[in-house]
Amino acid sequence: MRINKKWLLLFMILCGVCAALIWRYVPYSAIAEDPAAPGRGYIAKVLFLGASVSGVMLSALFLVLRRTVLLPYIETFSRYRFLLWQLIQRDFKSKYKRSVLGVLWTLLNPLLTMIVLTIVFSNLFRFDIPNFPVYLLSGQIVFGFFSEATNTSMVSVIAGGGMIKKVYIPKYILPLSRVLSSLVNLLLSLLAFLLVIWITRAPMYWTIVLLPIPLFYVFLFSLGVGMLLSAATVFFRDLSYLYGIVLTAWTYLTPIFYPATIIPENLRFILALNPLAHFIQYFRNVTLYGILPNLWQNIVCLSCGCVALLLGTYVFMRNQDQFILYI
């Protein structure tokens, strides 16, 4: 069954109705208290709400209509599971091949960076943030994961050119393996995070068991962006240089080492539109503050993740047959 215009129109109307219903009946308190942008960013909220509802429904629609189409993809994926595992292993091995400390660097890296930044920021610029090392490290871990995952998956297709020129493999395996190996790195650096909490005697809350949720959201988002970039970079190599600059700017636009409150009220919408700020806020809520994230936060984070993943997958799949002609 093909998705024609009538279906699409019906679907959009349905989405609009759902968004309106949620907007009207979900208690305002559950939606309004957005710690990333208190009181502001009304338009951003509507955008996110629409995006999340349409994202979820689009996936549902796709699954219903294209169930039989998806089946071969699932079969192919399960056939190439071992390849995925091998690629992740190789990423790891080649990363630490010549180093003495090996995997220990995954732990040491965030710790050492954190120490440097803590010294800089608690002496040079004084922000009144309680448990600053934990605050800093939480932002740094999430952002570091995103930047590593996207940076490495961006060139994954080009680097894998030798493979896809010789045999058939599902191409999405290449960015996926990079994002997954970044995820393994992230999990290892969580150990460093726990260590810092313990050393600085920061309070520990039970909400820390919810930690997999923000990690899942940021994983979806990074995978989507990674696939998008990896497809685009095949056609325009310049992107890999450009993206480094974008990432630098992004670091400063994200409250990693400064509190969100130092941004003037009328510019807060920038934070509200920054997915990473939301992921980091979620992460801090469950680890640092012991706050149970509300429905709104979940909607925002999930919608960012889903939209990025849908977009990335779409662009990647549309162009994947052309890759080989441009490598």
Binding site: R81, F82, L83, Q86, R90, I169
Partner: peptide
């Protein structure tokens, strides 16, 4: 290591 990698590429488990 390369035998296993190449095998995986050919779709073997």
């Amino acid at each position: 290591e390369n035998v296993f990698m190449n095998g995986a590429m050919l779709g073997h488990s």
